[in-house]
Amino acid sequence: TEELDSELELPAGWEKIEDPVYGIYYVDHINRKTQYENPVLEAKRKKQLE
């Protein structure tokens, strides 16, 4: 659920942004990119696909 997503600790260099226009998204300051999917959940999903 969304509530559990926010409890996950983000990897180093990541920041969660709550924007009133664009909603919640994540900033990867190391690689200078943004995405809507939580990077922790993304990594778990990719691992399940292997």
Rank of each mutant, 00 (worst) to 15 (best):
T1N: 14
T1M: 12
E2T: 15
E2I: 15
E2Q: 10
E2G: 11
E2C: 15
L4C: 02
L4W: 07
L4A: 11
L4P: 07
L4V: 12
D5C: 14
D5H: 09
D5K: 15
S6Q: 12
S6H: 08
S6C: 03
S6N: 09
S6V: 15
E7V: 14
E7G: 14
L8E: 08
L8Y: 11
L8Q: 13
L8C: 04
L8M: 13
L8A: 12
E9Q: 10
E9C: 10
L10P: 04
L10E: 01
L10G: 02
L10A: 06
L10F: 05
L10M: 06
P11A: 05
P11H: 02
P11V: 01
A12S: 13
A12H: 15
A12V: 14
A12K: 10
G13M: 03
G13P: 04
G13R: 02
G13A: 03
G13H: 02
G13E: 04
W14Q: 01
W14K: 03
W14D: 02
E15C: 01
E15W: 00
E15G: 02
E15M: 07
K16Q: 08
K16E: 05
K16D: 01
K16P: 00
K16T: 03
I17P: 00
I17V: 15
E18Q: 01
E18C: 10
E18N: 13
E18P: 02
D19M: 00
D19V: 00
D19P: 00
P20L: 01
V21P: 06
V21G: 06
V21F: 14
Y22F: 10
Y22V: 12
Y22P: 07
Y22A: 12
Y22Q: 09
G23P: 00
G23Q: 00
G23H: 00
G23V: 00
G23N: 00
I24V: 12
I24Q: 08
I24F: 14
I24M: 14
I24N: 01
I24H: 01
Y25P: 05
Y25N: 03
Y25K: 14
Y25S: 10
Y25C: 07
Y25R: 09
Y26S: 05
Y26M: 02
Y26N: 02
Y26K: 02
Y26W: 07
V27M: 14
D28L: 00
D28K: 01
D28W: 00
D28E: 01
H29A: 08
H29G: 06
H29K: 09
H29F: 01
I30L: 11
I30W: 04
N31V: 01
N31S: 10
R32N: 10
R32A: 07
R32H: 15
R32F: 04
K33Y: 05
K33C: 12
K33W: 05
K33F: 02
K33E: 03
K33H: 03
T34F: 04
T34Y: 05
T34V: 07
T34H: 04
T34P: 03
Q35G: 03
Q35P: 01
Q35W: 03
Q35C: 05
Q35S: 10
Y36R: 15
E37F: 03
E37I: 04
E37Y: 02
E37C: 06
N38I: 02
N38P: 03
N38R: 11
N38D: 09
P39C: 00
P39M: 01
P39F: 00
P39L: 02
V40H: 06
V40I: 08
L41P: 10
L41M: 14
L41W: 10
L41T: 12
L41E: 12
L41G: 11
E42P: 05
E42F: 02
E42L: 07
E42Y: 05
E42H: 02
A43F: 05
A43K: 07
K44D: 11
K44H: 08
K44G: 12
R45A: 08
R45D: 09
K46W: 05
K46S: 11
K46T: 05
K46G: 11
K46N: 04
K47Y: 08
Q48D: 14
L49N: 08
L49S: 13
L49E: 15
L49W: 07
L49H: 12
L49C: 15
E50V: 05
E50C: 15
E50R: 00
